[in-house]
Nucleic acid binder design. Structure first.
Length: 296
DNA sequence: TCCCAGGTAGATC
DNA sequence: GATCTACATGGG
């Protein structure tokens, strides 16, 4: 891997185990627009980024090396050795080998804590397209403009103070539905400092999970997603309907309880649970897509 | 039209 | 403790 800077772009050459589309579209983040094949506009950390991938080169448009070093390197988890992680997961596991063969270019993004928490509270009992729409409206109404591309303005995710000032009705107007009251309360608690990101990061997964699930509207699943995507707990293994279905099919061959899947995953994948979960989630969704297409 | 969605809280058995 | 149900809204 080699990083060069030219024409206001930062380019990473010879990147391994990375596919931009898989990373952005695997359901872990919600703030991206596809421009063309392997070309996206994303918003994170109060910035808009135009990025594209050409084979094993990743091009960050209008980006300084300093910005890359300070923001995007960490966000895209560039420096982690995914080759090693995948080898460990594939060992003695046909299912993981298949899943990784299909979507092995996924990286787990290091997203902002407040955005992850709010986004996944919104996500409950909702389709991914709708989650994206609601978050987009929330950002347009309450975020700050951070850039423009082809006539479209992009907005930041509202900061903690702004979120805390949004009335419950404001969340309803974003079409958050019954989740509005959860968002309203969560925003207040975020601002109060009771749920401090630094402290959460220093806790164990279990301790941090207890703090998160203390919030109304945050159960095991939303908590695990926040731990995994927003707080760096890579052992977290969120069990949603997709993961439940695919795990039942691949490892149990029958219906089982979520708790049982959780326990099994903990033993089988250990500290690599989060990666395993993402490969499985993507695999499950790709399978569903194929089934839909073959039905027609 | 009906079923369901990256679930969760509260009620009920 | 385990299971059932309401919840807003809209995609397919």
């Amino acid at each position: 891997m080699r990083i060069i800077s030219e024409n206001n772009n930062v380019i990473i050459k010879n990147i391994k185990d990375f596919t931009l589309s898989q990373t952005l579209e695997c359901g872990q983040c919600f703030r991206y627009d596809k421009i063309s094949d392997e070309e996206y506009i994303i918003v994170a950390f109060n910035r808009m980024l135009h990025i594209n991938q050409e084979k094993d080169s990743l091009i960050f448009h209008n980006t300084t090396e300093e910005e890359y070093e300070n923001v995007w390197k960490q966000y895209f988890d560039i420096e982690r050795d995914y080759g090693k992680i995948k080898e460990i997961l594939k060992k003695n596991d046909e299912n993981m080998t298949k899943a990784i063969a299909l979507q092995g270019g996924i990286r787990i993004l290091n997203q902002e804590f407040r955005e992850t928490l709010i986004s996944f509270i919104i996500s409950q009992n909702q389709q991914i397209v709708r989650i994206r729409q609601i978050i987009a409206v929330l950002c347009e109404k309450y975020g700050e403009p951070v850039g423009e591309y082809k006539g479209k303005t992009y907005y930041s995710f509202p900061d903690t103070d702004v979120l805390a000032d949004i009335p419950e009705e404001g969340y309803r107007e974003c079409k958050a539905g019954f989740r509005a009251k959860y968002l309203f309360e969560a925003a207040k608690i975020l601002k109060s400092g009771e749920l401090d990101e630094k402290k959460l990061r220093q806790m164990t997964r279990e301790e941090a999970g207890v703090k998160l699930t203390a919030l109304k509207g945050v159960g095991k699943k939303v908590s695990d997603c926040t731990l995994l995507f927003g707080l760096g707990f890579r052992e977290a293994f969120p069990v949603d309907v997709w993961v439940k279905r695919i795990m039942e099919e691949l490892y149990f061959n029958k219906d089982v309880k979520k708790e049982q899947i959780q326990e099994f995953a903990g033993e089988k994948f250990g500290k690599y649970g989060g990666y395993a979960q993402q490969y499985l989630f993507a695999y499950a969704r790709e399978n569903a897509d194929k089934k839909l297409k073959t039905q027609k």
